[in-house]
Nucleic acid binder design. Structure first.
Length: 495
RNA sequence: GGCCCCAUGGUCAAGCGGUUAAGACGUCGCCCUCUCAAGGCGAAGUCAGGGGUUCAACUCCCCUUGGGGCUACCA
């Protein structure tokens, strides 16, 4: 951009898990840093003491690391602008607050919650903007003493100058103009001495030499307040880029009721970091070419803030699934197995990794690779390989085995299976073709009984895939099992 | 209520005054096929409305409508 090294930051509040929207903000910042050879900084904005927690901070950092959005500077990484956790920077803010109060740009406000509330209500009823009246701007000493004797702890308010035009030059939105008359004197330090977001964020971005602030559009309306702080303190503001919000299916801001909104949840479902990143990047940003599937490195290569959309984007899980599926297909057998293993163990299909032979597992799991969008779908996909005893999926399936030719087909099948020298896919192909020929039946009358007899279901992967993986003993066992179930059914059945 | 942002198919979107208005997801159909998927091929489907500006508007301006955000001692 202009010679100076790009310094961008992601500054989450540790009040919950890393949200999809937050992940995208982090991603865009990270992409710009990587693209330009700049620095990506992680700062923790924990000034909301009530809601912030160390667990949330850890969760967010874990999620970022998992996504591969690692930071060059900041929390746990250190850097020349440390500390990077806002509650550890209180002294820094205090110094600036003294300046602001000293120069008359900020003042102490003793108003109580009730007073403020009343004021707001009254304004609203009159159809006026609910902004602070400024009544503490000029408190006389007597009044002040009185308040202090009452034990009231003052907050500090920024004195918003009237009749100012504040222009935010936004990299994605262009010039956005605000009138300072629409902004009430806002609180910069709470009565407990902790700075508020709009204050701390401005000071930190300035002090940490942040060059570009890329964040969600919900912050756009707050930017003029921050601009006022920059101005008041004599700081040069960074460049801003307010990216569009991610919305739920109903067009409102994505929240828990829209389903999985935390990165952690997707991780647990067995999504790939590259799939998630790829999908997130495509929400609000369009690559120059027509391609849609990118690795993280390719995203870095292609990324540009200039191609960011202004309109909000709806989070579409179907597209995410498709993109993730594309990335899954690129995995090797080993990689895919590693991704699926926790799901197999969690689903109970595999009590532990030693239950089955590794080489067999690898092959079985691999059969699902082209068919799933995320790893949690794997167990259902390969369940049939694990259970030698099963219920028939439907009456229709049973009926397939009840047909008069079925028994004949199955005994020939057993004979052929026993006789075959090896059960490779092509060997199986031969066996089945032979079966069709010798029985003189249409293909379906042969394939279906076999399929139902060995899986209990009428749908599934190709028999030439299933049969070699099951192997001779399991095949015989399953056919016999199905046959005995059917004859029991015949004997005890009502019709 | 005030201020700000946004507006191309169901969804993500390209477009940046002259195009048959790309592409992708999803949907539907066909092919493949023992089945289900996958895959291949194809189809339907969009410029929110109204005014301007212009020889010419999806593209520029205004209004309306709709959606969203902010207006907190939350971030």
């Amino acid at each position: 951009m202009e010679g100076k090294q790009v310094r961008v930051r992601f500054a989450p509040s540790p009040t919950g898990p890393l949200h999809i929207g937050g992940a995208r903000s982090a991603l865009f910042n990270w992409l710009l840093a990587k693209k330009t050879g700049g620095k990506f900084i992680l700062r923790i904005e924990d000034t909301d003491l009530e809601r912030s927690s160390a667990e949330s901070e850890e969760g967010i950092k874990d999620a970022l690391r998992w996504l591969g959005l690692t930071w060059d500077e900041g929390i746990d990484a250190g850097g020349e602008y440390a500390p990077y956790r806002q509650t550890e920077r209180i002294k820094v803010y205090e110094e600036y607050t003294r300046k602001l109060v000293g120069s008359g740009q900020a003042y102490h406000c003793f108003c109580s919650d009730e007073e403020l509330n009343q004021e707001r209500q009254a304004a609203l009823v009159k159809g006026q903007a609910p902004k602070y009246s400024g009544k503490c701007r000029r408190l006389d000493a007597a009044r002040r003493d009185l308040y202090e004797k009452e034990g009231r702890k003052p907050a500090v308010r920024f004195l918003v100058p009237p009749d100012q035009t504040i222009v935010i030059d936004d990299l994605v939105r262009g010039e956005v103009v605000f009138d300072s008359n629409g902004i009430g004197d806002f609180i910069i330090v709470k009565s407990d001495g902790i700075p508020t977001y709009n204050y701390a964020v401005a000071i930190d971005d300035a002090l940490m030499a942040i060059t570009h602030v890329i964040r969600g559009e919900e912050h756009l309306s707050n930017t003029p307040r921050q601009a006022l702080v920059y101005r008041g303190l004599g700081f040069t503001p960074p460049k801003f880029a307010h990216i569009s919000l991610i919305l739920g299916k109903d067009r409102s801001k994505m929240s828990k009721r829209h389903g999985a909104t935390s990165v952690e949840l997707y991780r647990r479902q067995g999504y790939l970091r590259e799939g998630l990143l790829n999908f997130l990047a495509l929400l609000g940003w369009a690559p120059p070419a027509e391609r849609e599937i990118f690795t993280a490195a390719e995203l870095v290569e292609q990324f540009s803030l200039a191609h960011c959309a202004k309109s909000p984007a709806i989070f579409d899980p179907e597209k995410l699934n498709w993109i993730n599926a594309q990335h899954i297909r690129k995995l090797s057998d080993e990689e895919f197995y590693a991704l699926a293993l926790p799901q197999l163990l969690g689903s109970g299909l595999l009590p532990n990794e030693e239950t089955r032979e590794k080489s067999w597992l690898l092959k079985v799991v691999a059969t699902a690779r082209e068919h799933v969008s995320y790893a949690a779908q794997v167990p259902e996909h390969i369940r049939l390989y694990f259970e030698d005893e099963f219920d028939f999926e439907s009456e229709e399936a049973k009926a397939v085995l009840m047909e008069e030719d079925a028994g004949k087909v199955l005994s020939s099948f057993k004979l052929l299976v026993n006789a075959a020298k090896d059960l490779t896919p092509s060997g199986v192909q031969t066996v089945l073709k032979e079966l069709v020929k010798s029985s003189g039946l249409p293909g379906k009358k042969v394939y279906m009984p076999v399929r139902v007899a060995i899986t209990g279901r009428m749908h599934g992967p190709e028999l030439t895939q299933i049969i070699p993986l099951l192997g001779r003993p399991a095949l015989i066992k399953r056919v016999d099992y199905s046959l005995s179930k059917i004859s029991a059914e015949r004997a005890g059945g009502t019709e």
